[in-house]
C-alpha cells in the first residue's frame, strides 16, 4: 500500500456550460519518506492539486488516499506551507507558531508548548525575531516562520505549495538548504510544488511535470539519481544532473509549444467588397 495515492482525479470548477476542468486524470503514488517535486507552469492547476491533497478541496471524481484512507478534510498529519506565507499579521512570530502547536498538541502544558515554539523558531534561525510581527519581517523571514509553523505541528507529511516562489534567488537558495536540512533529520514524506526545475532537481527524489491546464494532467516522471547531501556548485558539473535537467526542460518546452499551437484559433474573416453607390 502506497503512502499517498491519487487515483483518476478530476477537478472541475463551476457548473454546466461554464464549468472548466482544471485537473484531469491525475494519478500519483508516493512512498513513505519520499521527496517528490511537481513542476509546472503558472496557472496549470498546481495549487488546486495541493489543496486536493491537503484536504481543503474535494475532487469532482476520483479519490485521494492517505495511508489507505480517503482524504475528506484537513489533518494535522499533513502540514502545509502556503505560497503566500499566510501568517496572521496581528500575531507575533511566536504567537503564530504557538497557535498551531496548541492545536496539534492540545493536551500539553503551556510550558512544553512554548519550549517547542522556541525550538522551531531557533531551527529556522529566527530566535531574535520571535516577538516581531510578520509586517516587520522580510519575505524570506516570513516564509521561514511558515516553515517553522508547519514543522512544529510534527506532521507525517509536509506539503509545500511553491514555498519559495516569491523570494529572490539568494534567499531562495538558503531556504532550500534549510528545508533540506530539516527534512534530512527525520525524513518525513515531502511533496514540493514548484515552477523551478533546478529547485526540483536539487531537492527531490522524483520530479513529475504537470502538463498545463485546463485539463492539466501529470507527465512522465523523472528520477533524480544524485546522492544526498547534494552540493549545488558540484552538481552543475554532474553529468546525471545535466542529463535530467535537459530532459525535463525539453519536455516542458515541448508541452509549452504544444499549448501555444493548441490555443491558436484561426479567425476567418468575412468576405467583404466595397459597395459602389455610383452604379
Amino acid at each position: 500500500m502506497a503512502y499517498l495515492e491519487l487515483n483518476n482525479i478530476y477537478k472541475t470548477y463551476g457548473e454546466g456550460e461554464n464549468s472548466t476542468e482544471v485537473l484531469s486524470n491525475i494519478n500519483l503514488t508516493m512512498e513513505e519518506g519520499e521527496f517528490v517535486a511537481i513542476v509546472g507552469f503558472t496557472g496549470s492547476g498546481k495549487t488546486t492539486l495541493v489543496n486536493l491533497i491537503n484536504g481543503l478541496l474535494q475532487p469532482t471524481s476520483g479519490e485521494v488516499l492517505f495511508k489507505g484512507v480517503p482524504v475528506t478534510d484537513t489533518s494535522h498529519e499533513r502540514g502545509v506551507i502556503f505560497q503566500n506565507y499566510s501568517l496572521l499579521p496581528w500575531l507575533t512570530v511566536g504567537q503564530n507558531i504557538y497557535m498551531a502547536v496548541k492545536e496539534a498538541f492540545p493536551k500539553e502544558s503551556k510550558k512544553v508548548l512554548m519550549e517547542r515554539v522556541k525550538e522551531y523558531v531557533g531551527m529556522v534561525n529566527l530566535s531574535p525575531a520571535i516577538n516581531k510581527r510578520p509586517k516587520e519581517l522580510s519575505g524570506g523571514m516570513r516564509q521561514r516562520v511558515a516553515v517553522a509553523r508547519a514543522l512544529a505541528m510534527n506532521p507525517e507529511m509536509i506539503i509545500m505549495d511553491e514555498p519559495l516562489g516569491a523570494l529572490d534567488a539568494l534567499t531562495r537558495g538558503n531556504l532550500q538548504d534549510e528545508i533540506l536540512n530539516i527534512w534530512s533529520q527525520d525524513k518525513r514524506t515531502a511533496l514540493l510544488i514548484t515552477n523551478d526545475v533546478d529547485e526540483g532537481i536539487y531537492m527531490a527524489d522524483r520530479i513529475i511535470p504537470l502538463k498545463p491546464g485546463p485539463n492539466a494532467t501529470l507527465g512522465p516522471e523523472f528520477k533524480i539519481n544524485i546522492e544526498r547531501p547534494r552540493d549545488k556548485t558540484a552538481m552543475n558539473d554532474n553529468p546525471e544532473y545535466k542529463k535530467t535537467r535537459n530532459a525535463i526542460i525539453e519536455y516542458l518546452m515541448d508541452i509549452g509549444d504544444e499549448r501555444k499551437t493548441v490555443s491558436d484559433v484561426e479567425y476567418k474573416l468575412p468576405e467583404l467588397t466595397p459597395k459602389s453607390f455610383v452604379a
Binding site: 491537503n54 481543503l56 484537513t74 502545509v80 496581528w90 492545536e103 505541528m153
Partner: peptide, 27 residues
Amino acid sequence: KDYINVAKVLKLGTFQKVFKVILPSSL
C-alpha cells in the same frame, strides 16, 4: 481567504476560528 485556509489547515475549532482569526482580521 488565506486566513480561513490557515484556520482550516490548523483545524481550529469554531470558537477559536472566530476569536483568533475572523475577529482580529475584521477589527
